Amino acid sequence: MYSCWGNDLYYYKNFKGHRNTIIKVLKRVNYIHTDCQRDFEMAKSLGFNGDFLGVIPGGTGYKLDELQKFKMPVGQRKIILVKGY
């Protein structure tokens, strides 16, 4: 089973070496679940033909109203967070 985390396919399919590995692996995978429908469609286009177990969002959504109390004006912020691969 392959548990796909969005950018696993979306980002890495753009690099020839990674893309070739992804294609080889997807041919051997029996089951997959993805973060979104887009990623399932992408997996199919890259050769996955096993059973789709559905969309299971990794972030599971955010309760934005509960996070409002943590917002700060930009000038008061002391941390810059960069997420990358």
Rank of each mutant, 00 (worst) to 15 (best):
F70G: 06
V82W: 06
Y2S: 02
G58M: 04
P73L: 09
Y2F: 15
K63S: 11
E41C: 03
F48C: 01
F40V: 03
F40I: 02
L67D: 05
P57G: 03
H18A: 15
F48D: 00
Y12M: 06
M1H: 05
K69Y: 02
K63A: 08
F48E: 01
T60R: 12
K13T: 11
N14A: 12
Y11R: 12
A43V: 07
F15R: 10
R38Y: 14
I79Q: 12
G17L: 14
G61L: 08
Y85E: 14
Q37P: 00
C4I: 12
L53A: 03
R19A: 07
M42C: 09
L46R: 02
T21G: 00
G61C: 08
V82A: 07
L53Q: 03
G6H: 09
D8M: 12
G54R: 11
L9P: 03
G84M: 15
L46T: 01
R38E: 13
Y85D: 13
L81E: 08
L64D: 15
A43M: 08
E66D: 15
N14H: 14
P73Q: 11
N20A: 11
A43W: 03
K78P: 04
I80M: 10
V55L: 05
N30G: 09
Y11A: 11
C4P: 01
I56L: 15
K24S: 13
A43G: 10
Y11P: 02
Q68N: 06
G61M: 10
